[in-house]
Amino acid sequence: MNQDIEARKQELLNQGYTEVYTKTKVLTDAVMHYCPGCGHGTTHRLVAEVIDEMGIQDNVVGVSPVGCSVLAYNYFDIDFQEAAHGRAPALATAVKRLNPDTFVFTYQGDGDLAAIGTAETIHACNRGENITMIFVNNGIYGMTGGQMAPTTLIGMKSATTPYGRRVDINGYPLRITELISTLPGTYYVTRQSVQTPAAVRKAKAAIRKAFENQKLKKGLSFVEILSNCNSGWKMTPVQANKWMEDNMMPNYPVGDIKVDGKLVENVDVARLAVDHPLSVMQ
């Protein structure tokens, strides 16, 4: 089957077609275990493309978390370390300090980075380690069956909040990206999403910048990627992307928060959670 595809590609090139896009060789041919339409796959692809474009495939170490992306090392053709739950920034610190010229990135979800690993995240950011952190936020614990995460929206249904998240019981959604942007150790903090072609291109540019910043040795680069979790939200992938635009983006506004060590003007990092009615989920 695979040979048929390679033959078809070669045939098109022989007919005078030019290649616009094809999957990067930094990703392996393994079929990803993610649900159809999951933003993790897109984010994996973007990270791999950036590594390919920078030509650092033999000089980069990834650190994978516990969560949906625990098997990330199967999909990247680069060196990888698996960290204990939430401890990816601590492990990445060790890798970077022992190999200062190696590019190091962590790839974490919201349950890993914003719940179990909050201490490691905040201290790694505060120390200003020269690493890149990729944070995929889908507002839910996807792998374990859609339980409430710190990032779950007010009123959002999950397995453990079947009537919606309530502030009086469960508290407010944690905007960890705004939180760590106030720490002096961070150099570049941004929030992106991967639901449309335009958003994907912007997210790729942000990841590229986050990797380039490691050469400057000025601090930590942090990229949050908003993703859908269509299985956890119980929607089709296209509906989930729409729901994310309508409901997650008011709470988690997309854009740069801190660039070159300075907070971007007109970004209110201390604003209160938006309590607006959510579209119907199920």
Binding site: Y17, E19, V20, Y21, P36, R45
Partner: peptide
């Protein structure tokens, strides 16, 4: 038209795009 929008959003990277 070979715009590669489909390839950009494909989570599994299964689409290759060519144009002439």
């Amino acid at each position: 038209i070979g715009c590669a929008s489909c390839a950009m959003v494909c989570p599994d990277g299964v689409i290759s795009v060519y144009k002439i």
